[in-house]
């Protein structure tokens, strides 16, 4: 047998399942049921099982648009961007982007952000565990090291700024089926932090300056830069922001282990 036949078969199979390409059928034994019908079992399973997975992760989106419309969106997404990981809780990171540019969703301008919120809640639930450090970990630094410290935040955290009232939409659509409530989009948007807090997926709305502070830290800027950025966004209370960080279990350590910090990292993390 020539080298690489299995690789070719697997490539043909992937095209058969994702795109409906029929070349793979010629590889199969014709025996009773036609080869195309046999391939269809795997094709149906691929789309059905991943639609179910997306439906669980994007439960709010599914409530908003109904099962059939959601299945159509999911089908388009699976064909275009199949999972990159076998862990289904990690699937759907870019589903919101597909919603944002899909013509069928043009009349639902808030839907992409709802999807981002759903994915953030999913991430909050499933992200790896990292022990939080308190402010004591910062106290050991001298003033200059403190200002230059780049803080690491929990991997369960998502920061999301939306023009729409995402928390109200989420709440209204997680009541029993048939009892979902209405939401007034004109109630306005918000800036959300969504993360795992005491074992539960949680969120809170942040003031613009606090949001800018966390966003700057999440982008890898040092504490001094983040404080300056936040200060430029209206009234900012750095003490309150720091106590929020530590009190909510968001702070997990330092991004780069500069020599003078290694003792702190060893002492506080792990």
């Amino acid at each position: 047998m020539s080298q690489g036949t299995l690789a070719r078969i697997q490539d043909e199979f992937a095209r058969a399942l994702l795109l409906g390409d029929e070349a793979a059928a010629a590889r199969l034994v014709e025996d009773g049921l036609p080869a195309a019908a046999r391939l269809q079992i795997h094709r149906n399973h691929l789309f059905h099982s991943l639609t179910q997975a997306l439906m669980q992760t994007f439960a709010t989106v599914e409530r908003l648009v109904g099962e059939r419309f959601f299945a159509g969106l999911a089908r388009a997404y699976v064909a275009e961007q199949p999972p990159r990981s076998p862990c289904l809780f990690e699937y759907g990171e870019s589903f919101a982007d597909l919603i944002a540019r899909h013509p069928a969703c043009a009349a639902l301008p808030y839907l992409a952000d709802v999807a981002r919120f759903d994915f953030a809640v999913n991430l909050a639930w499933n992200a790896p565990d990292r022990p939080a450090i308190g402010l004591d970990g910062l106290v050991r630094l001298d003033a200059d090291s403190l200002a230059g410290a780049r803080l690491a935040l929990t991997p369960s955290l998502t920061l999301l700024h939306s023009d729409y009232p995402l928390a109200a939409i989420w709440r209204a659509n997680h009541r029993p089926r048939g009892e979902e409530e209405g939401v007034d989009l004109d109630a306005g948007g918000g800036r959300f932090m969504i993360w795992r807090h005491e074992g539960e997926a949680a969120w809170r709305e942040l003031a613009p300056a606090d949001f800018a502070f966390l966003q700057s830290l999440a982008d890898g800027h040092c504490l001094g830069e983040a404080a300056e950025t936040a200060g430029g966004r209206g009234s900012f209370d750095l003490a309150a922001a720091l106590s929020l960080l530590a009190g909510q279990g968001v702070l997990i350590g330092f991004r780069s282990a500069a020599a003078q910090m290694s003792s702190v990292i060893n002492g506080e993390v792990s």
Partner: peptide, 24 residues
């Protein structure tokens, strides 16, 4: 098998029972 080019097809897909597949 379920992965090709980093894409995960979420199924336990069948193999041809060849000597090449056995090597792999």
């Amino acid at each position: 098998w379920s992965v090709v080019d980093g894409r995960y097809l979420n199924d336990l897909l069948p193999l041809p029972y060849t000597r090449e597949a056995l090597d792999i």
